[in-house]
Simulated scan of single mutants.
Amino acid sequence: MTDYHSQIQTEAARLAALAGDLSVPVPTCPGWTLAELITHVGQTHRWATHVLRNQVRERIWSRQVPGDLAEGENGDADWLAAGAAELLETLRATDPSMTVWTWGPDERASWWPRRILFELVIHRADAELALGADPAIPAETAIDGVEEFLHNLPHAAWVTRRLAELGAEGATIHLHANDADGEWTITQGPAGKITWARGHAKGDVAVQGPVADLLLLLYGRRSPDALTVYGDRALLDRWLAAAAF
């Protein structure tokens, strides 16, 4: 079983260590500085903690949960670390099989650690890119991240609405890691929903590259120009623009 708790602890510490000059703009999150990014991540931690501690079963969004900040105030490294520690304590004390609200397909507490990990991984990458560093994501983590993204995507209504507008039903996108055992084919279905399968296949467009870059590509943090693309590049560009969280 994947130790998401330890990975969350590591990623939260890495992000907190990047939260020095909070005025630095974050190009991959247009309009945000590091202050807004830190606040977003820390608020997400407090949201998950609230859902789990209170065994929430009705939809509740992050903005509805108190963030321990004054109106208009942003969080900092210490505030981020405090929220992450509280969340980890809660996760370790929670039965993974407990029924709680999630926005994904799994209405169990076990959905949250994996989601929180990749929220941290991607936003840590945002911070590193903002500071001129190249994000490093272990291949095993990136493979899990690709599949976590695809697992949840059909349930992200704000994304499926955009995908439905593409008129691309039946289109296929193949992702092929060249540094790890990872291949996936995404098929665009009706109403913006997708299906996906592991393994080698031909697609209308195929993208090949390091698996960490494939993960960042799905989240709109890496341009297809940094990878090898075969087939319908226009389809890929349109799909990625609509699908990115």
Rank of each mutant, 00 (worst) to 15 (best):
G203E: 05
V65K: 08
L236S: 13
E169W: 03
M1Y: 01
W112V: 02
H176E: 15
E11A: 09
A13M: 04
T195P: 11
A180S: 12
L216Y: 15
D68G: 10
T228G: 10
V146T: 10
N178H: 02
I186M: 01
G72K: 00
W196V: 05
L120Q: 11
V146L: 13
D126L: 08
A12D: 04
R162F: 15
L240W: 12
E148W: 14
S6F: 06
G209Y: 09
A19K: 02
L175N: 02
R53S: 14
N54W: 14
W32N: 03
T185G: 03
W158C: 09
A191N: 15
G104A: 00
P135H: 07
L91F: 00
S97M: 05
H45C: 07
E107I: 00
L131Q: 13
E73G: 09
A171C: 07
L235V: 06
S97R: 01
W184N: 03
Q64I: 13
H45I: 04
E128V: 03
T228I: 12
V100F: 01
D237H: 10
E128A: 06
D181N: 06
S6C: 01
S23H: 07
E86I: 01
A125Q: 04
S110I: 00
R115S: 10
A206K: 08
T94V: 00
M98F: 01
S110N: 06
G209Q: 03
A133R: 13
S223M: 11
A82R: 06
T195S: 15
A171G: 08
W196A: 11
T195M: 13
L150V: 01
L218K: 08
G189E: 15
Q9T: 03
A136Q: 13
R53L: 13
Q188K: 13
L117A: 05
W47N: 12
I122M: 08
G182Q: 13
R57Y: 12
H40L: 10
G67V: 11
G145P: 14
G192K: 07
A197V: 15
D179L: 06
G42S: 12
A82V: 00
G145M: 14
G192S: 13
E165H: 12
R238I: 13
L153Y: 03
N54Y: 11
H45A: 03
L129S: 10
G20M: 06
L22N: 04
T172W: 08
R115Q: 07
A12F: 08
N178Q: 03
V146E: 10
L18M: 05
L163V: 09
L15E: 00
R233V: 09
V207W: 07
L15W: 05
F245M: 14
A197I: 15
R63M: 15
L22H: 03
V100Q: 00
P66F: 12
